[in-house]
Design a protein around this nucleic acid. Sequence first.
DNA 1: TAAATTTAGCTGTGATCACAAATTGAGACA
DNA 2: TGTCTCAATTTGTGATCACAGCTAAATTTA
Lengths: 227, 227
Amino acid sequence: MSSEIDNSTQDTPEHLTLQEKVYQQLRLDIMLGNFEPGKAITIRGLAEELGTSPMPVREALRRLVAERALELLPNRRVTVPKMTAEKYRELADARVAMEALAARRAMAHITPDRLTDLRELDKEIDQAILRNDVETYLIKNMEFHFTLYQYGPSQIIMPLIESLWLQIGPFLKMAMRSKGLGTVEDQHQAAMKAIEDNDADSLSRAISLDILDGVNRLPDEEFDRIN
Amino acid sequence: MSSEIDNSTQDTPEHLTLQEKVYQQLRLDIMLGNFEPGKAITIRGLAEELGTSPMPVREALRRLVAERALELLPNRRVTVPKMTAEKYRELADARVAMEALAARRAMAHITPDRLTDLRELDKEIDQAILRNDVETYLIKNMEFHFTLYQYGPSQIIMPLIESLWLQIGPFLKMAMRSKGLGTVEDQHQAAMKAIEDNDADSLSRAISLDILDGVNRLPDEEFDRIN
DNA sequence: TAAATTTAGCTGTGATCACAAATTGAGACA
DNA sequence: TGTCTCAATTTGTGATCACAGCTAAATTTA
């Protein structure tokens, strides 16, 4: 799952705190769906696994709870939250609202170079679809979205979107497996066309459709199967 | 500022952790603007002030940092973030996006009783405006918004909106003082009319205008004065 | 007097310990 | 075989300590 934390100084020239490294490691594990939802995550257990004292793990876990990537149950135990159909829909709605906004803000800052980068990413996405390579598709799709949004400098909106991805991420894999990649419509093309035309409304519509297309692949019945 | 934490068992029948109480207390202090932005907040200092050990304060501070109510500077010091014109605009945009969505979701769940409650709140807001009572206006206005949104049951969106209020809250007071309450347009009336008509678009437009009207009272020049 | 340097104190981070509450597993009983 | 009981273990929370890095005041130097 999550291997030993490397605390050597050379690969992290600027001194990062241990809790920061643990946080990054756990964040990745959560995103990749490496924790079974509902199963308790213990401080001492992780600490031993990562080769640290319980202290940094404690702080990292609390941070992830605050960001809603993890859940603090009434029994004071920490788990990856189970997904429900309602939560899933809500996450999708929130993503549409925030990412449409982020895309709008980004558009004014897109240069030809940056558009080329987006096209390059989109090409890789198309190839992953042809290969039916879910893993790569999800990673590159995430890259596409975040690359676009990051062009609009933001201190508030980006972290918010990251938090939403952290919550929905572990379940997107299931969504894709459920229906397969064959039927994905490439809204990214429409998005880039909108950028060329400098048409903010079309861009935000394309992003919205892209999110909903991806998200709607997981039928309601699936959620009962998870719990 | 923040007085002693009451750790007696009777007023909190269900056993709350110390860090939770400290968190609630600090959250309130931040919202009320009791911390000077940019001034360092120390663990031991607060611990002594609240009559606890540093431990619960440490955890509460980190939680508030994760929620972006506080900021962790590169020097590892914690402060209330200074507001900038760009951040302020971004917070306003994010609030419009999320709260318009929350209002939409809430509308389907509004009963005549609940509409009456909203009208009651709006009346109190009007009275506060007539009295030029900024403090009450802000509190009741917040109540109005959160009461409305809470009608649409939500696990994702509400906490997100709370986080945004926590960030912009300390500066709304300034915004109101800057222009005075005299010129506020009552978008709440329009909002309730939209609810009656079951018109989601009008409701979300009214909420958006309400947010922007409140937020736009703080001219850009003010931000330099703060820092 | 003003700039540079030392020094003393304070700060966040991480480790360890104590403890009450919760969980688990084995054994007793039906 | 299934259910209850109770002891053993594990858990999160909070307190305390050690320590390296940073701050700011005191002292020296020009």
